[in-house]
């Protein structure tokens, strides 16, 4: 509650002084356990803001939607550490100018919410480095461990079963801050690179294409997993890809706004002859 009140006051001040044109945060949802994204444009509306442990959604995707930042004005946004990593990647991929972003950082343990000190992306670099250092020690969820123990055929069968439920609603893509392409590869129809049908093959194509595109970019915010209306455990795919990228390239996505995208950068002295 204290964190929420403090932030409400700061948000009001920034809006009243025109330091930001909008603040993206959370407000109560249709049931007590739900929170909705909130877009605050005037300090009078700041009282709608809530901040508690149920504020989970990574809001950073809104920053790159429908030209919000095109007027070069500043926007405030409530972000957990994963969200800060997301906007670092967006900046590294030239999707936003970090100087336009005012961060209201927070994190939670249990029901306790605490503020993260700082307003600019660079204020959080030590925090993010710590998270990288600690990430190998975080215990994996049992389901991921059991998938890793499966042989190739069992793993294929597992995902075939999971993907059989996919309806290609693209909620995973739309909820993902990294899926900002103006035209997704699956929406390109001249030629039609990827089948639009959501039969087994089409569902595999879609989900595997997405996994590849997110390798080295996913921060495991869980937006895709929570958005999936048929409960495919999408987080596990991206978690595994992130682990492999960390092991193979010592790359932890979103450490800073200038971090080179690991699978989209080229070095002349690369020992590999093949480039993805």
């Amino acid at each position: 509650m204290i964190t929420q009140e403090k932030y409400r006051t700061t948000v009001k001040e920034l809006l009243a002084s025109d330091s930001v044109k909008m603040v993206i945060g959370y407000k109560p949802g249709s049931t007590p356990d739900r929170r909705r994204p909130l877009f605050i444009r005037s300090s009078d509306d700041a009282d709608q803001l809530v901040l508690d442990s149920t504020c989970i959604t990574n809001l950073s995707g809104y920053l790159v939607a429908e030209g919000l930042l095109s007027d070069e004005k500043r926007v405030g946004i409530f972000l957990r550490p994963e969200g800060i990593r997301s906007i670092n990647i967006l900046a590294a991929e030239y999707q936003l100018n970090m100087d336009q972003i005012v961060i209201f950082g927070f994190d939670s343990t249990g029901r306790e919410v605490r503020p993260l000190e700082g307003r600019h992306s660079k204020d959080f670099s030590a925090l993010l480095s710590d998270i990288k250092e600690n990430s190998p020690q975080i215990s994996k969820e049992p389901l991921l461990e059991s998938i890793e123990r499966m042989n190739e055929q069992e793993r294929f069968d597992f995902w075939q079963e999971e993907f059989s439920r996919c309806i290609k609603c693209y909620a995973c893509r739309q909820a993902c801050p990294m899926c900002y392409c103006r035209r997704c590869i699956v929406d390109s129809n001249q030629p039609q690179w990827v089948n639009t049908s959501s039969h087994t093959l089409g569902n595999f194509e879609w989900n595997v294409v997405r996994a590849f595109h997110l390798s080295g970019r996913c921060v495991q915010c869980g937006n895709c997993d929570r958005a999936c209306p048929v409960n495919i455990p999408l987080r596990l795919i991206n978690q595994r890809m992130a682990e492999m990228v960390l092991e193979g390239f010592d790359h932890f996505a979103g450490l800073s706004p200038t971090q080179e995208p690991v699978l989209a950068s080229f070095k002349k002295d690369d020992t590999e002859t093949f480039i993805l």
């Binding site: 809104y62 309806i167 290609k168 609603c169 909620a171 089948n195 049908s197 209306p229």
Partner: peptide
């Protein structure tokens, strides 16, 4: 609709939404 992310979760789970696309594969 400011917060709408533009997925088809609502339309695909809807018992009455009926739009379809014809595709040659």
């Amino acid at each position: 609709s400011m917060r709408c992310i533009g997925c088809a979760s609502c339309t695909y789970l809807c018992p009455t939404c009926h739009c379809f696309d014809i595709q040659d594969e």
